[in-house]
Write a protein that binds this DNA or RNA. Structure first.
Ligand SMILES: [Mn+2]
Ligand SMILES: [Mn+2]
Ligand SMILES: [Zn+2]
Ligand SMILES: [Zn+2]
Lengths: 152, 152
DNA sequence: TCCTAAATAATATATATTCTTATTTACTAG
DNA sequence: CTAGTAAATAAGAATATATATTATTTAGGA
């Protein structure tokens, strides 16, 4: 996936974007992160700061917006106040199961839109769908097992 | 629906809640609103202020939280930064089609969870679902028609 | 009517995000 | 390789949303 992402990063130039060190490092923050929880702007900021002490939070936000437009990353909004962002290797989208205990976000290989289109739902309503959200909140298997042990 | 909501409001007393004028007026703000767009805290605040000039925004937030716990209203999170709230006549939950032009939010009579449980999805993953979100964003029929006329 | 837990207003604080402006830099065309 | 320029940046101020603190008031039961 790294290659895919890097390739798309370099294609930015065609659209008049520049590839600055800060911009690259912001993408690296995502590539380096092994976490299942998508990164907040603040977390990206802290990571990039290790290499570029002077980077401003504004630069992070600006780049997150740009990368989002290019579909290199996706913004995901959980119950949390702040937005989170994750790499988007497929250039598509992703739904999640988010654990209310540990905060992990596991992708779901299911999209409810498929079913809606089979049902001809939007056509009937004359509504032109452009985007959608679908997220599950609950308790992941790890946290559930731990809860059982703790209660024993 | 007004009766249903008012009944549930009065049942609050049983749980140790008091029915203050401010609290009633906050519920009225929702009952009076004919808008399809759920109300933001700020909008509720402005509405209640017409009657109680001294109400504090904090009181609005506090009551929105209380009413949410009692399932009298639901919080809905659209793309927007701020949260919005709507009456919950069924005491259940509701998904929406939100228009990116006019902001209207039409309820959808479809919940993707039904299908997931048929598929035994969560059971396989060992994930205990507690909450979920599902919202469609796009263009409503009214705005689509208007766009066609404007272009003619 | 009195008592008390609950609710309130006022104010301060926290947190996330965006805006403004002066300066620097990545890229391109010559 | 250089120079010109649009794009990007850092710094800091500003805005927006939401929450916490505290002293005072009030709803509703005893
Ligand atoms: Mn989907
Ligand atoms: Mn549902
Ligand atoms: Zn977990
Ligand atoms: Zn519309």
């Amino acid at each position: 996936m790294d290659e895919n992402i890097r390739k798309r990063l370099h294609e930015m130039r065609k659209n008049g974007y520049k590839i600055t060190p800060q911009r690259q490092e912001i993408v690296n923050a995502f590539l380096d992160s092994s976490r299942k929880l998508p990164l907040s702007a603040e977390e990206v900021y802290m990571k990039v700061k290790e290499k570029y002490q002077n980077i401003s939070l504004d630069t992070v936000y600006r780049n997150l917006a740009v990368l989002q437009n290019l579909k290199i990353i996706n913004r995901v909004n959980f119950h949390d106040v702040k937005s989170r962002y994750e790499l988007n290797p497929g250039g598509d989208h992703q739904h999640h199961m988010i654990c209310l205990t540990c905060g992990s976000a596991e992708p779901i290989n299911f999209c409810p839109l498929k079913l809606l289109s089979e049902n001809n739902f939007a056509a009937e309503k004359n509504f032109e769908i452009r985007e959608h959200t679908f997220e599950l909140f609950g308790y992941c298997s790890t946290c559930r097992e731990r809860a059982i042990i703790d209660n024993a």
